[in-house]
Design a protein around this nucleic acid. Structure first.
Length: 256
DNA sequence: ATGGCAGGAAGCTCCTGA
């Protein structure tokens, strides 16, 4: 099973990119973030015509998550239970016996902002929920835009980013807290090229200058880690016309 | 110290992203 995550930064704008890419890459499961579409505007027919079952939880202008799957999406659920968050950032479904949770972690804006506080609170709620989910669903994948670069090797200029949002120690501690639940960073299960990033600022020719961060991740529970065969970032789309500022991350899982 | 770029909604500018 090939599973991917991609922050599309507007599904309306990126639908042609997505359709072309899934036709070429043929993923089985796709987790999308920042669809920025209210549910009635979701491009349902185009994605169904491409051969995917779909689930989505969207809102106008901001946030919005979706799951596409070539296999049936079962037990679809949006949001973190018991957490009254109006922002559409979480969508879960079971695919082929694997619980798949798509997450769009808050950005945080800057470490001295209210949004940073919200980000850390949100991550604490996510972690508490996933601890329970792992009991119910030992085969668990949590993938999406985490808005956290877990280590200095995930940052093009660690000195410049030290202590900044996306790289700050409390955010990294929250990421380690997820790992402490038994979740593994799927990308790092395999040798990877240096300067592997998933996001590059639109400004200052950051992509061409390889000034990126690795902030999109696919975490897998231990039973699934044993089934992982490969993982990579596909940066080709970042060089396209009107690109998303994020690149897809791909994980290949052996059949059970 | 600031802006750079992009998308969306609104409406001739601002908010958010990361």
């Amino acid at each position: 099973m090939k599973i991917v995550t991609w922050n599309v930064n507007s599904l309306k704008v990126r639908l042609p990119h997505l359709l072309g890419w899934i036709e070429h890459e043929k993923p089985d499961v796709v987790a999308l973030q920042e669809t920025k579409l209210d549910d009635p505007a979701f491009p349902r027919s185009a994605l169904e015509a491409a051969g995917y079952g779909i689930a989505f939880s969207g809102q106008k202008t901001y946030n919005g998550v979706a799951l596409l799957s070539r296999f049936p999406l079962e037990d679809v659920a949006a949001g973190i239970p018991g957490y009254g968050d109006e922002q559409k950032r979480v969508l879960a479904a079971t695919v082929q016996g694997v619980r798949v949770i798509c997450v769009y972690v808050p950005n945080g804006q800057s470490v001295d902002s209210d949004k940073y506080r919200y980000k850390l609170d949100w991550l604490a709620m996510l972690t508490a929920w996933l601890r329970e989910e792992l009991v119910r669903h030992p085969k668990l994948v949590v993938l999406g835009d985490y808005n956290i670069a877990p280590a200095d090797e995930d940052v093009h200029d660690p000195k410049a980013w030290e202590g900044q949002v996306l790289c700050s120690e409390p955010e990294r501690a929250a990421f380690r807290g997820l790992e402490a639940l038994g979740l593994k960073d799927g990308f790092r299960l395999f040798p990877q090229p240096e300067r592997s990033y998933t996001w590059w600022d639109y400004r200052m020719n950051a992509f061409r200058r390889k000034m990126g961060l690795r902030i999109d991740h696919i975490l897998v529970s231990e039973p699934l880690a044993a089934r992982c065969q490969a993982s990579r970032i596909d940066a080709t789309l970042r060089a396209a016309e009107r690109p998303s500022d994020h690149a897809p991350v791909i994980l290949e899982l052996a059949d059970a």
